[in-house]
Amino acid sequence: MLKAAFNALKNLFSTPATIDYPFEKSPKNKEARGLILFEEPKCIWCLKCEDVCPPGAIRFTQDRESFDYTYHYNPYLCIYCSECVRACPDSAVALSQCNELSPPTDDKNMNDNWFKIEKEAEESKIAVKELKKIKKEESS
């Protein structure tokens, strides 16, 4: 008991362990996992990351005319598990993880429109598949 009291007294004169959080930034390790960064030129559009992402934070939509993919990433859904980075094939390395956590954004796509993007991602791929089929039949 006396030792604990002494410890309390010692703490009185040592620096506190807590920080003024909103005014000071909390310390972060450089190994900390953060946002997923995407480099479009490197991507080979294999869609492995979309397949493997547990919360479905990465979605690709496909254009119905040019068949080009567009990358969508929702940082609010992301759980920072880096499964997509592991899944990214060695020939591409388009995805990487930095140590910044998701900052709050005003991007409407993230909250309200995300369901639309999810739906579009699925529908556009099916539509493109059918379009391709029709094209093949036409050409043959």
Binding site: K28, N29, E31, A32, Y80, S82
Partner: peptide
């Protein structure tokens, strides 16, 4: 230690 080792 956990943050340094696993990232979270």
């Amino acid at each position: 230690v956990q943050e340094a080792m696993t990232g979270n």
